[in-house]
Structures are given as C-alpha cells and as structure tokens.
Design a protein around this nucleic acid. Structure first.
Lengths: 195, 195
DNA sequence: TGTACATCAGTGAACGCGCGTTCACTGATGTAC
DNA sequence: TGTACATCAGTGAACGCGCGTTCACTGATGTAC
C-alpha cells in the first residue's frame, strides 16, 4: 500500500472529527462534502473510500459529538463537590462559552430541530444517544426512582438546549447573558426545590 | 385587471399561510417554492409577483407562525382560572397534540436551531417575535420584577420548546408521552416553587 | 536480489438533480377616448 | 356605446449554481515469484 499502515484510520477519524464540528456549526444541509475535504487538504472523490455517503458520516459525526459533549459535562461534574455535581453540569451547559461555540457544544442544542427530518437510521441513533446522555446524568438528579431521574435528566437537558438556542438567536450580547443567567438560576432552583 | 380587486391580497395571504405551515414542518431548506405554489394550484413563476424572494417569504411566514402560536396559547390561558393561567399555557404547549403537529405549533420549537444560520434580517425578526411572546406571558409569571418575569417567561418558553423537540425526536410514542408528562410536571412545579 | 504485478487511498472531471430566480409571453379586464 | 390600448397576475421554459455521487485514472508501495 501507498500509505503507512495506520494512515486510513487516521484520515477517517480526522474527517469524522471535522464533520462533527461543522455539522454542529452549520447544520447537516449547510455542510458540503467538497468543502469539508478541502479543509483537510483532500479532494471530495476520496471521501467515498471512507464512507458510504453523507448520511453515514452524519451518523458517525453525531455520535462523536455526543461523546465529546458528555465527556466535557461529566468532567465539569467531577470537578464539583459531591452534592453540587448537577449544578456544575447546569453551569457548564449554560455558560457563555458553550453558547458561543456551537461547534464544540451539545449536538442536541445544535441539531435537535432538524433531526426529525432525517431518515429513521439517524433518528434512532440520535434517540439512543440522548438517552445515554440522560442516563449518565440521572445519578446526579436528587430525587425520584431511577426511571424518573432519567426522565428528569432528559427534561433538564432539553430545557437547557432550548435556552442555549434562544440565547444563540438573541441579537444582543447583554440579552444573551441575561437569558443564560436566568436559565441557570431557574434550573438550579428547580432541582433544589423539587425533583 | 384580470382578477377581482381583492384577489392579489388573498393569494398572497394563502401563500404566507401555507408557507408558515410548511416551514415549520420541513424547515426552510426543506421547502421548495415550486412545491409550495403547486399545492396552491399555482406555478412558481408567479411567486415573484408577491415576494422579493424566499427570504422575504420566510420572514413573513415566521411572523404568521408566531402570531398563530401566541393566539392559541393565550386562548388556552384565558380558559383557565386566574391563578392557573401559566399552568394552562404549559399544559397546552407540552400537549401530545402540539407535539404531533409541528406545522401548527410554536415556531421556536420547529425552527430555533436553524435561525442562527439565516441572514441578520431573519434573526432580528425572530428575536423580536420571541420577546413579544415572552412579554405576552410575563404577566402570568408569579414572581419577580417585570424584567425578571419576562426573562423567566423566555426561559420557560425555550425549555418547553426543547422538551417538545426531544419528544418529537423520540422513536417510541410511550417515551414521547413520558417526556412531555415529566416536562409538564417539572415546569409547573418549578413555577409554583420559585419564580 | 530483482522484476512484474496487485493494491488501494487519493484525484479531478463529469453527471444528474433540485431549486431559486428570471423573463418573454398570455389573456382577461379596466380605462381612455 | 364602442374600440384601442394598458395593466398585471399568472405561466412555463430556461438559466445558473451548488452539491452528492460516480468513475477512470494515478502512483507509491507491498507482495509473489
């Protein structure tokens, strides 16, 4: 073979990683394969040596985005004292940095509304990833049965994703901050007060 | 003129109305002008007698969607006893019917994530409409200053929009119902407990 | 060891399709005279 | 009242562009003998 042993795997990983960022920033229809490949110093034809098509790339990029996001949020939780871990997740999710960087943020906030218009294969993958994320946060929820905690975690995640979206849509930075701050207070208060 | 006096206004209104539904169901990139016009018994060429282009239609359709959604939610509030109006809004927004019918539902839930990728003219219009919606619900929020109530209303709206999106993405109906039910309980409890 | 061949990641032209937009044209009705 | 002309919503062919995907080809390296 022309390229070293590990070459293909590395290129493939770079494509998924770059796509994961671009999809979150621009949506799946806003990303062109040729642009993506050009940024990696490649041409579009070679793409199909790695993936069946754009759908497959989207699915893998989505999984990578969920993994990255989960890892980041759980790391924030791990840095907090035991009884403040869910609050740490809320603070991290609703931070101005998260809001300003959709490319590295939660894929739910970035892509939720368009997932419903993707083929079933994408929707079930998304669905599963959301539940995995909720399952990871469920132990941090203060009250309720295991199933209730997981659903509360889902409500929390979806609510924070919605808040980030509105903040991103805001035209003034002061308003953006106000929405994020109010959402942080709201969710932390709600979790403290009730399950 | 070939057509009766009011004809043009009526056609224009029908286009905006149909577009408002289609955009919410399929996203702005998923709607083709030719398809839209064909469903109204017209051809695509005539579209440009009414609108400068797709962007202008999108802006007007968005405004129509906000107006329709606000009206529907305020009507639900008006049917409830005075101290239960915001809860009625929560129940209406997070109902299975709302979830099942994006075409007639809240444009925030349907379009939030893609608004950020539209031209500024669209973003400011969206921003303004969101604030108008929040201002309409602010008086129903139990606690806080006027500014705080409005921001709480925005957090509530954004949170409910996120919950509806996750419910729509769910692959099983039982899960959809569970998310909606949990979200209703969460937000009603949070509003009762704290501002 | 040297030679012929196979492999396969990557290239870039080409294809097909969808779609937004333009434009010359139509034809029914209003208006000027 | 009748006739010629203007108006303009709507038509449908055509254009241009972006983009996903295909495909014949390249060329460096591994492998068989």
């Amino acid at each position: 073979m022309r390229y070293p042993k590990e070459h293909k795997d590395q290129v493939r990983e770079r494509i998924v990683e770059a796509a994961s960022r671009r999809f979150r920033r621009q949506g799946s229809e806003g990303v062109a394969i040729a642009d993506l490949m050009r940024d990696l110093g490649l041409t579009h034809g070679g793409f199909y040596r790695h993936f069946k098509g754009k759908d497959q790339l989207f699915r893998e990029a989505l999984a990578a985005a969920f993994a990255q996001s989960r890892q980041k949020l759980l790391a924030a939780a791990a840095r907090a004292p035991e009884n403040r871990r869910l609050e740490a997740v809320v603070d991290a999710y609703l931070s101005p940095e998260e809001c300003a960087n959709p490319a590295e943020g939660c894929p739910i906030a970035a892509l939720a509304t368009e997932i419903a218009r993707h083929p079933r294969s994408v929707r079930t993958a998304f669905d599963r990833a959301v539940r995995e994320l909720a399952a990871a946060f469920a132990p941090l929820v203060p009250r309720g049965s295991a199933a209730e905690r997981e659903r509360t975690a889902m409500v929390l995640i979806s609510g924070m994703a919605g808040a980030v979206n509105l903040a991103r849509a805001a035209s003034e930075d002061s308003q953006r901050r106000a929405i994020l701050g109010r959402a942080r207070a709201f969710y932390k208060g709600a979790l403290r007060g009730r399950g």
